[in-house]
Nucleic acid binder design. Sequence first.
DNA 1: AATAGGATTTCCT
DNA 2: GGAAATCCTATTC
Length: 189
Amino acid sequence: MDRDFFARDTAEVAKDLLGCYLVHEIGGTELRGRIVETEAYYGDHVEDPASHAQNGRTDRNEPMFERPGRAYVYVCYGIHHMLNVTTEVEGKAGAVLLRAVEPLEGLEVMRENRGVEGREELCNGPGKLCQAFDIDKSHNQEDLIEGHLRIDKGSLSGEIVSSSRIGITGGEDLDLRFHVKDNSFVSED
DNA sequence: AATAGGATTTCCT
DNA sequence: GGAAATCCTATTC
């Protein structure tokens, strides 16, 4: 992946990430999935009440201000990890939340991590995706251009649909959620 | 089928 | 002290 890909408008990056691959090489196995659902979160330069960065820089959202193409991992509701990719130029906050992927390789490891069998249940939600791919806070701020955890370029087959983001309060009128139409691996319809 | 509650980090009032 | 970019389980209709 090219660094410039991420150094753009967050919603554009969120859209273009659909069809790309999320890869995690771990212990000799490769976990791979096609990204089918994302959400864009702006920083304090755009009105976005739901963004962590809306009230300025904190210890948690610090990666959102860092250079693009990096991981922003945080814990939600005390248990679940969320994986974001940082966007926009360095110093300008922005991130794309990966909400769902279609599992392609390393299915057995994912099933072990998740404790469920169904291929469609492995990664159809931001918390589940992190559990399946064994992603936690130790990956925070890691570079996703090249490395064990990274995003590879892919092409999208299907139509992109936008809608309002899920599980947030504030900014519900913004169409910043993107997913592949009629794809059975997204978290919701 | 639908709803309610729990797990438990990080931030803001 | 309370809410949050969630998910799983148990209880009730």
